[in-house]
Design a protein around this nucleic acid. Structure first.
Lengths: 248, 248
DNA sequence: AAGTGGTCTAGACCACGAA
DNA sequence: TCGTGGTCTAGACCACTTC
């Protein structure tokens, strides 16, 4: 509904691409769902097999589908993310380092968003957002503080969050399961640790830390806004870029 | 030649994809070069127009080609880069902020790579690299220090660099023109400014700074390794990620 | 108006991989 | 073995853009 041209999609495979993508994003076709066979889909939608193949091949390149010969076509499990994206799942990252991840919740409350948050999350001015779920906590790798996280969640995008006690499960991990296929935008900067950060991370006040501000959205609607701070000498982000995004 | 499977590319359009990509990367087809028409290419290579169309469409999605009706197919000008990639061209970034960019070279010499550099740039152990071109300088936005840069360049990948005096033109900008289509890998971390950095950037020693370590390669061969340090409060990186890279 | 890329089809054969 | 996705073709019509 947002972003692209308001004009109707003209070509056959464009229309089908949009249709299938929306089915997947809305989880009407949940992860693991098996689609009908290519020939059947072509018949059902009244197009040639070539055209349907173009659609399915494209969605496979985009990572939405997984195709296996003789078995069929399935909606992908979206845990395969781009390199920098993987930091969304801090638990997985810590485990990849061979350490034990744990999350300690410091605060959880429902409150109105601040004006700064409304700007950063780009909350629409007209649809007045009554309240957001605020969370603050610290991730640990073994017994060592790994990352301090402040976050607000949009209850309209993720209603189940209101029922969820985040005392042990990290919100990022939980959201990734609830709302796969979201897209994110990161701002990355260096900041000196203030008193609260220094206390929570066990570093000296003023020490250089890496701050990642991540805004997540799906279909143009904001889902969550997170401020994550890592001790500077203990953490690195990794990002790869080609002349253009490669597919395979 | 590197990276992908050593097996020969089987399918027609895969073979053509590789062939055309190598032509573009090697600049046998330089930016702006006009390819023969789709129908002619199909005839020349003995494939159907559909197959050739698949190849050209894919290369267009990858950003290598630009196609315009009635005009033809051209090799793209590769200045359109991914969001984080754009920081490669610091001059363009400064100008985008409406300020004047300048570069001051502090050091330039030919020397052997240190062991740390060999690790970070992943210089092959067997092919013993005799020497690399070392550069150090500072970027300015108007009169204010913007970024301090240390860099080594591989003379085998960019021989023209040995002839180039970098006293005013920034090495990143120059390399981008010499070797388009390169791909890069970034490591991003926060560091406290040491004395040399503090002096060059005009910040207090110990102040939080953002360090970007960028390794650039083309066809598997390393081209350059850069360490860039930005004052923490004056600079942010921006990165966007979807569930998978989008094309159009 | 003409020529280029953009799309679509019906049918065919092939290759991989699960049974 | 055999069903599924993977690929390829020859031909056709359309739409956009420049002339």
């Amino acid at each position: 509904m947002a972003g692209t041209k308001p004009r109707a999609n003209h070509t056959l495979h464009e229309r089908l691409l949009g249709e299938f993508r929306s089915f997947i994003i809305s989880q009407r076709w949940p992860p693991g769902y098996q689609l009908p066979f290519e020939t059947d889909l072509a018949d059902t939608h009244g197009v040639s097999r070539m055209t349907m193949n173009k659609v399915l091949t494209q969605l496979t390149r985009e990572g939405f589908l997984v195709r296996r010969r003789k078995l069929g076509t399935f909606v992908a499990r979206p845990h395969a993310q781009a390199a920098v994206m993987e930091i969304a799942d801090i638990a997985a990252e810590v485990q990849a380092l061979g350490q034990v991840h744990s999350f300690v919740l410091h605060a959880r409350k429902l409150r109105r968003p601040s004006s700064g948050e409304m700007t950063e999350a780009r909350i629409a001015q007209d649809r007045r957002q009554r309240s957001v779920l605020y969370l603050m906590g610290v991730h640990f790798a073994d017994a060592q503080p790994f990352c301090r996280e402040e976050r607000i969640i949009n209850p309209e995008a993720a209603p189940a969050a209101l029922e969820q006690d985040f005392s042990t499960v990290a919100p990022g991990q939980w959201l990734l399961q609830q709302i796969p296929w979201s897209s994110a935008e990161h701002r990355i900067r260096a900041v000196g640790a203030d008193r609260a950060v220094a206390r929570d991370l066990g570093v000296q006040p003023g020490e250089a830390c890496l701050e990642v501000i991540r805004r997540t959205e799906i279909s143009g609607e904001w889902v969550t806004l997170a401020h994550q701070i890592y001790p500077g000498d203990r953490h690195e982000l990794l990002a790869r870029f080609g002349p253009r995004a490669r597919a395979d």
